[in-house]
Simulated scan of single mutants.
Amino acid sequence: MTFRIEKTVTSGTFSLDGGTWDVDNNVWVVGDDTECLVIDAPHDSTAIVDLVAGRTVTAILLTHAHDDHIDAAGSLFDQVEAPIHLHPEDRMLWDAVYADAGPDGDLADGQTFSVAGRTLTVLHTPGHSPGSCCFHLPEEGVVFTGDTLFSGGPGATGRSWSSFETIIDSITAKLLTLPPETVVHTGHGDSTTIGAEAPHRQEWIDRGH
């Protein structure tokens, strides 16, 4: 069976600290012809189910719990019946959207998820939010970074429960140590590589202070 990484883009809003913004989010589906897992559940569960295309979903992995990454998680769960996993340090953000039901499982640094003969490793990368996580797929030379690292630098840290110093530490320790050819699949916008981003670390720091 052919292993593949697929993406769809969904559109909606992100709300925090009294503001609301229009956003386009990437959804990543990783697997083969029979099974897959889904990374993030933004805005439109139907679009995600269409990409799944009848395969067994083994897990829904959330990079973090800002509402634009989880607002379709409940309906996606209802349609594919796969467990939702989130780092517990983002539970307050989850509870703001789903007050009556928690995720099915916690994420932890170093935890692994297997799908279609491949293994993803959880990298806890706080900063954009306390529970932000990335998912490293070394066999394919890929890391899914959510809103921790984008093409052009770190994710935003100007809102509640975020920290610029922490996100820089996370990126430095957990992401820039990956092979430079590693492809970075992000939560919004275009993909990049570790090698393309690493030389700009000091520029990010200078810009952020």
Rank of each mutant, 00 (worst) to 15 (best):
P83E: 14
T172C: 07
V57K: 00
P154R: 04
D44E: 13
S11P: 01
S160M: 14
H85E: 05
S11F: 12
I168P: 00
F14C: 10
W28Q: 06
A198N: 07
S11L: 08
L51M: 15
Q79K: 11
S170C: 09
M92D: 13
D33S: 13
S129A: 15
S129L: 09
V184N: 01
A96E: 11
L86V: 08
P180C: 07
T172K: 12
A41P: 00
D22W: 03
T56H: 09
S45A: 15
V122M: 13
I70L: 09
D104L: 01
T2Y: 14
D17H: 00
K174M: 15
A72M: 06
S11T: 14
L51K: 15
Q111R: 11
C133Q: 02
T58N: 11
K174P: 02
P199F: 10
L120H: 02
F150N: 03
L76R: 07
T46Q: 13
E6Q: 13
V122C: 14
H87W: 01
A99D: 11
E203G: 11
T182N: 01
L93N: 04
A73D: 06
P83N: 13
G105W: 09
D17L: 00
G74H: 12
L176Q: 06
I171A: 02
T192H: 08
L123I: 02
L107P: 05
V115R: 02
S114C: 10
S129G: 14
T193I: 11
C36V: 12
T157C: 12
A59I: 03
S75N: 12
V80R: 02
S151Y: 08
G152N: 09
F14A: 13
G155E: 02
F3R: 08
R207T: 15
A173V: 15
I60L: 06
K7A: 14
D95P: 01
Y98N: 02
D109W: 09
A73L: 00
G153P: 07
F3A: 02
E203H: 12
G54P: 10
T119L: 03
Q111A: 13
D109T: 14
D44H: 09
I167N: 12
G12Q: 09
C36L: 08
D33Q: 13
P138S: 07
E181N: 11
D40Y: 04
G146L: 10
D147P: 02
S75C: 06
V115K: 06
E6Y: 07
P179V: 09
D68K: 03
L62K: 01
G105P: 10
D104Q: 07
S162F: 01
P180Y: 07
P179N: 09
A116M: 08
